[in-house]
């Protein structure tokens, strides 16, 4: 589904990603872990098409198509979704109107009719119940004044509404209380199928207790330095990153 080949990317001449290779297949869950500043959010932004970053080498292939020339919206229309580490506050646009626009613009791009209002409402109700989001929330301005946890939950609500093929969750677990973590994880698990894939970026093993990854990758200074199964996350939780750094040096 997603194939990242020797990806180098940076901003204003500064290289942040220094040759990343990952392959994600349909039905899989990948976790990416790594210290602060190692390039995790940059990687997810580059996949989602943020123009601020420049790809200097390598490429990203999604469903057999090189994403290089595609705008963020075109990538979204193909089924790529990014749950932001820091969701942006947009005063003056309600969650509901935002969702309606996003869904209908996506449908338009896919050559589909607009979603009938009744169906939209039903879907909004269903998904907000799944994530235990209060209806009052939906008429509020997007992310404006939302607490950290509320923002994250709202990201997963959007994901549930858009039903992407590939969801990249950038530290969605950070800032969630214990109940919210369970609710969000449940939401993600409900979306899982053999046709879609999830990339989880996280600092903690906690989330991986709920959503068990098939692969865990360690990103260090813009490179994937180690990959393994779910057990690697436990090891990192216990030992931190130093041993990997040392391993890297001795190699």
């Amino acid at each position: 589904m997603l194939k990242i080949n020797n990806l180098h990317a940076g901003v204003e001449g500064k290289e942040i990603l220094k040759g990343i290779g990952i392959e994600v297949n349909a039905g899989e869950i990948h976790a990416i872990m790594g210290p602060n500043g190692s390039g995790k959010s940059t990687l997810s932004s580059v996949i989602a098409g943020k123009e601020e970053f420049e790809v200097t080498e390598g490429n990203i292939v999604f469903e057999g198509e090189d994403l290089d020339e595609l705008s963020p919206e075109e990538r979204a229309h193909k089924g790529i979704f990014l749950s932001f580490q820091y969701p942006v506050e947009i005063p003056g646009v309600s969650v509901t109107n935002f969702m309606k626009t996003a869904i209908n613009e996506t449908r338009k791009a896919q050559g589909l009719e607009e979603m009938p209002a009744s169906e939209m409402l039903k879907k909004i109700r269903e998904k907000s119940e799944l994530l235990e989001i209060d209806r009052k929330f939906l008429s509020r301005s997007l992310n404006e004044g939302f607490s950290g946890g509320e923002k994250k939950r709202n990201e997963i609500f959007q994901m549930a509404m858009l039903e992407p093929r590939l969801a990249i969750l950038d530290e969605t677990d950070s800032g969630l209380d214990i109940d919210a973590l369970r609710i969000v994880a449940n939401g993600v698990n409900r979306l899982r199928s053999k046709d879609n894939a999830v990339v989880l970026i996280t600092h903690y093993q906690r989330l991986l207790d709920y959503i068990i990854p098939d692969f865990v990758h360690v990103l260090l200074d813009g490179k994937i330095v180690k990959s393994g199964g779910a057990e690697l996350a436990h090891e990192l939780e216990e030992k931190g990153y130093d041993w990997i750094k040392q391993e890297k040096v001795s190699n």
Binding site: A48, E73, H77, L82, P87, I90, F98, A102, E105, T106
Partner: peptide, 19 residues
């Protein structure tokens, strides 16, 4: 950043700007 956020949800640049 707001523009990118909206576009990443499938809202085309022109509409995102308008929004």
């Amino acid at each position: 950043d707001a523009l990118f956020y909206l576009r990443s949800r499938g809202i085309p640049a022109k509409e995102a700007k308008a929004l």
